[in-house]
Computed example of a mutant assay.
Amino acid sequence: MDFLDEIVLTGLTVFGRHGVYAHEREDGQEFSIDLRLRMSLDQAAASDDVADTVHYGELAEKVAAVVGGEPVNLIETLAERIAAVALEDVRVQNVTVTVHKPHAPIPLSFADVAVTVHRSRAPEAMEDITI
């Protein structure tokens, strides 16, 4: 089964308190999140019903709750948590999550720091999906 179809959400900006330094947890900062969900969109295209796809507005709210929620030290951990939220929908076969931390505490001029993780549904879970 090929999952060449994608739903992409980029630039979701959320205030969070993640980082290894106390001032990052106290002051907080904005994080920007990019998501790329790979799944079949055939059923949604045929039915024209939002119930047959991932509702990206609802997903954005869930991701924002993770970013604005419990602080973690590393954006790697944050990216992993976001990927887990995206994979809660059994139709999503794999996800790419990029967490941007443009205000990272680096004493040099830079445009962005980002971490990207790629996560897939376990193969045995894919066998249970009926499309």
Rank of each mutant, 00 (worst) to 15 (best):
E127G: 11
S109Q: 12
A86S: 09
R119S: 13
M126S: 11
A79Q: 02
Y21S: 05
E30D: 14
G16W: 05
R38Y: 01
N73S: 07
H103F: 13
R119Q: 10
L108G: 10
D52E: 05
I82E: 02
D52C: 03
A83S: 04
L41W: 04
F110E: 15
E61G: 11
L74I: 05
E80N: 10
F15R: 15
F15Q: 12
H18W: 07
L74P: 00
S109H: 13
A22Y: 00
H100E: 08
A111S: 14
L78M: 05
V20T: 08
V117N: 06
L59A: 13
G57C: 14
P107V: 09
I75V: 11
K101E: 05
D128P: 08
E76N: 02
P107M: 08
F31H: 01
L108E: 14
S47C: 03
M1W: 09
A22S: 06
N94C: 12
L12H: 06
T130D: 14
G69A: 04
I7P: 11
E26D: 13
T13Y: 12
L4E: 08
V113C: 07
Q29A: 11
D49Y: 00
S40A: 03
G16A: 06
F31M: 05
D48K: 01
I7K: 08
R25N: 15
E30F: 12
A46H: 01
A84W: 13
P102N: 09
T98Q: 03
E76H: 00
S32Q: 11
V95S: 06
E6D: 12
E24I: 01
L87K: 02
K62F: 12
E76Y: 04
V92H: 05
T98S: 10
I106D: 07
D34M: 07
E70F: 10
H23R: 07
R38K: 00
A122W: 09
Q43G: 09
A51M: 08
V115R: 14
M1G: 09
I82K: 04
V113M: 07
H118W: 11
D49P: 01
E76V: 08
V63K: 05
E30K: 12
A114I: 09
V50W: 06
L35V: 02
A111P: 07
A83Y: 03
P71K: 08
L59C: 10
T96L: 10
P123I: 02
T130Q: 14
S120T: 10
S32C: 13
H55R: 14
V97I: 03
T10W: 09
